[in-house]
C-alpha cells in the first residue's frame, strides 16, 4: 500500500446556514498528483484552505504526516505549513516586489542562505518555469499565465513535500492552460512531491492526475485513477463528464 500524506476524516464546515463540507473523507497518497474535481462554488477552495489550516472545520480531522492539525494553534500550524507550498488561484504574488524578490522571499524569511546562494536557487527556479529573463519585472507587468509560473516557482523554492494548487488553469486560454499543466506534471515527475490540485477543468486534469476525487454536495463521492473515474457509472460523475461535450473524449456525448 502506498504511503498516505494527508488523511481527512468526516470533515464538516458550514458558513451560516450554508453547508459547504458535509463529511469529507479522503486519503491523499504521497508522491502523487491528486486532483479534486467539483463544481465552482462547491467547496473545493474551502477544502484546500482546511488542509493548510487557513480555515478551521466545525468537526472532523485532518492528519498530515501523522499530525492532526485541526486543533493546532497558529504557531504549531506554522511548523506544519513548512511542509507546504501553494499556488493560489490568482498567484497571489506580492505586488510590491518584483519577480525575483517574490521567489526569493520565502528563502530570505526561512533560511540563512547568503544572497549568492539565494540568487543561484531563484535563477534556477525561474528557468525551470521558463521565465529566465523576467526577474526584474513587477507582477503588474505579467500576464495571468506568467504570474502562475512565478507563483509555481515561489511555491517550489523551499522544496516543500506537498504543493497545493488552487484552480491552476482558471482564467487562462486553452494553450497557456496546457503549458501550465505540463509544467505541473513535469515538475512533479522530476521532484516526486505530493501535489494536490483542485479544479473544475476536468479535461485538463485528466492530463496530469494520478488520482481523481469527485467532490459533490460537500462529500467525496468517488476517488480513483482517471481511468476508473472515466468509466464510472455514478450519475453525478457522468453528468460532470458529459458536460465536457467533446466528441471522442471518453465520457463526452458522442452518440
Amino acid at each position: 500500500m502506498d504511503a498516505i500524506a494527508v488523511t481527512i476524516r468526516d470533515l464538516h464546515k458550514s458558513f451560516g446556514s450554508q453547508k459547504v463540507l458535509d463529511g469529507i473523507n479522503l486519503e491523499v497518497e504521497t508522491g502523487k498528483i491528486t486532483v479534486i474535481i467539483g463544481k465552482s462554488g462547491g467547496g473545493k477552495s474551502v477544502l484546500l484552505k482546511h488542509i493548510i489550516g487557513l480555515l478551521k472545520p466545525d468537526s472532523g480531522e485532518i492528519w498530515i504526516d501523522g499530525t492532526e492539525i485541526t486543533h493546532l494553534k497558529e504557531k504549531e500550524l506554522n511548523t506544519v505549513r513548512g511542509k507546504f507550498g501553494m499556488l493560489f488561484q490568482e498567484a497571489a504574488l506580492f505586488d510590491s516586489m518584483n519577480v525575483y524578490e517574490n521567489v526569493a522571499f520565502p528563502l530570505r524569511e526561512h533560511t540563512h542562505l547568503t544572497e549568492k546562494e539565494i540568487e543561484r536557487i531563484v535563477v534556477e527556479r525561474l528557468s525551470q518555469v521558463g521565465l529566465s529573463g523576467f526577474a526584474e519585472k513587477m507582477p503588474g507587468e505579467l500576464s495571468g499565465g506568467m504570474k502562475k509560473r512565478v507563483g509555481l516557482a515561489r511555491a517550489l523554492v523551499l522544496d516543500p513535500d506537498m504543493i497545493l494548487f488552487d484552480e491552476p488553469t482558471s482564467a487562462l486560454d486553452p494553450i497557456i492552460s496546457l503549458t501550465i499543466l505540463d509544467l505541473i506534471k513535469e515538475t512533479q515527475l522530476n521532484l516526486r512531491k505530493t501535489y494536490i490540485v483542485i479544479s473544475h477543468d476536468i479535461l485538463g486534469m485528466f492530463r496530469i492526475a494520478d488520482k481523481v476525487a469527485m467532490l459533490y454536495d460537500g462529500r467525496i463521492i468517488e476517488h480513483g485513477t482517471p481511468l476508473e473515474i472515466r468509466s464510472s457509472t455514478r450519475e453525478e460523475t457522468r453528468e460532470f463528464l458529459n458536460a465536457t461535450k467533446i466528441p471522442g473524449f471518453t465520457g463526452g456525448n458522442h452518440e
Binding site: K49, L54, F84, F94, E109
Partner: peptide
C-alpha cells in the same frame, strides 16, 4: 484590502509568516 482580496495575506500565512 487589495492584498486581502488577491489572497496575498493568505499567501503570507501559508508561508508560515505572520
Amino acid at each position: 484590502a487589495t492584498m486581502r482580496v488577491t489572497e496575498q495575506i493568505d499567501a503570507l500565512r501559508v508561508m508560515a509568516l505572520d
